[in-house]
Design a protein around this nucleic acid. Sequence first.
DNA 1: GTGTTTGCAAATCATTTGCAGCTTA
DNA 2: TAAGCTGCAAATGATTTGCAAACAC
Lengths: 133, 133
Amino acid sequence: MDRQTVSRETVIRLFRTNARPLSMADINRLVGAARPGTAYSTVFRIVRKLEAAGLVVRVDWRERGSRYEWAKLPHHHHAVCVVCGSVADLDDADVGFNPDTVLRRTGFSVRHHAIELEGICSGCAASERESHA
Amino acid sequence: MDRQTVSRETVIRLFRTNARPLSMADINRLVGAARPGTAYSTVFRIVRKLEAAGLVVRVDWRERGSRYEWAKLPHHHHAVCVVCGSVADLDDADVGFNPDTVLRRTGFSVRHHAIELEGICSGCAASERESHA
DNA sequence: GTGTTTGCAAATCATTTGCAGCTTA
DNA sequence: TAAGCTGCAAATGATTTGCAAACAC
């Protein structure tokens, strides 16, 4: 069904080599750098297909808009630093999340869950402490 | 600064009487029912002002788009049932979230956090068990 | 060949804004 | 009166689609 085209391989390579969530515009820009002349609609349709195929997952960031990342990364959540913009990956245990807890306490059976954190990374926190000293 | 107008009061009343997160379109439709002829831009600007004033908060739902709800509700998260569409409110303890855990385990200092769950509510789970019996 | 994919332009859809007239304090 | 609203229409910006030509299998 899906054909192996240069554009498709280019997009897949991008996801594989880029650990950070990418916006559609990011992807388009990166593809454009590798293959000038590639249409936005082409990139859009490829990403949409990859998402439908489950190879890529979409994450929604409040202000920063929706982004996409390679689905083969282990399940995790994002902690975005409002100071330096870095993104840390956290797993369920890091945030304390447990679907069984939810089920036991509320009766709700969790199928999917998304946790997005915004705050200050340890590096920036250290810098702040220094400057205040 | 902000003036008390009929449109503004109408929107505020909507938020106060509607516990569910509302999309801009929802709000516009409801305001339109109460006050035919109200412009979408008017509703939009009122909601934007309420958000800026901290009276209303925005929540982002993957597919369903961004929504708004009355900010005076206690801090909570949403569990959307994929079967019946109902929305349950969960607090941090229900999902196990604790900012201190995050800080201790990762060094990340959480300022804001959003948790969105998708799954099956207890009611629908019960119905499913029945129909399979 | 036959069914997909691509580039281009144009349609959508949700948000936002400019502006002149109306309203609230 | 003066600063804020409002309605209307139009600008944005992000997605999404139609279509004929190009391409993969």
